[in-house]
């Protein structure tokens, strides 16, 4: 196992190719659940969890699809897998870890339709990552999401108290802020381990 390779994947997923700020995946929960830092943290944690598990589960299924020469079926199969996986995880958590379920509960079903999760799985196959690389990419992609949404939520909490032109109040100024944050993350684009 090459740790430098894994580190490079992690760095890329968190900063350079941040799912939100440079790939623009998972924007709807990013805008929707970012009004408070607490909820943003909960959502971020849930995304890390689901992205990691989805990467792990989809890897063997992708191997099966490749062996049957069914590459064109990837997207539809992954959607099926992710949706059932989230449902299953929700039921399991409710029984086995009620406290964790309480913390993530509301956000888990939301993630079912989060394109960042599908994105991470598809990118795993496009980059032909092996199992461990897939899981690392999934988890660190989630960490990148967490970083982005918490940063954004802290900015939005301050935005609440600032006076801005009437026509910009609410979502317009939030979108402008997201754009500026994305610009800031562009600064990481030159960063690489190798």
């Amino acid at each position: 196992m090459d740790f430098a390779q894994l580190f490079s994947i992690a760095l890329g997923a968190i900063l350079v190719n941040n799912f939100i700020f440079s790939q623009f995946l998972g924007i709807c929960p990013f805008m929707g659940v970012s009004k408070k830092i607490d909820t943003a943290l909960g959502m971020g944690m849930a995304v890390i969890f689901v992205m990691g598990v989805a990467s792990a589960v989809c890897w063997p299924i992708n191997q099966l699809l490749l062996s049957l020469d069914l590459k064109f079926m990837q997207t539809v199969t992954f959607i099926l897998v992710i949706a059932s996986l989230v449902q299953f995880v929700e039921m399991f958590l409710q029984k086995a870890m009620p406290s964790l379920y309480q913390a993530l509960g509301v956000y888990l079903p939301l993630i079912t339709t989060n394109c960042a999760v599908l994105g991470v799985v598809l990118q795993n196959t496009q980059n032909s990552y092996n199992f461990i690389e897939s899981v690392v990419y999934g988890v660190t992609g989630g960490v990148g999401f967490l970083l982005a949404i918490v940063l954004f939520a802290s900015v939005r909490e301050r935005l609440e108290f600032s006076e801005c032109p009437k026509s910009f109040e609410g979502f317009p100024i939030a979108l402008v802020t997201a754009g500026l944050l994305a610009l800031a993350f562009l600064g990481f684009s030159g960063l690489s381990v190798f």
């Binding site: 699809l65 049957l68 079926m73 199969t77 059932s84 299953f88």
Partner: peptide
């Protein structure tokens, strides 16, 4: 293709 999706769907349905 039909088999894979059908079987996967069925299996996940049963598991759920």
């Amino acid at each position: 293709a039909l088999l894979v999706l059908g079987v996967l769907g069925g299996v996940f349905g049963l598991i759920l």
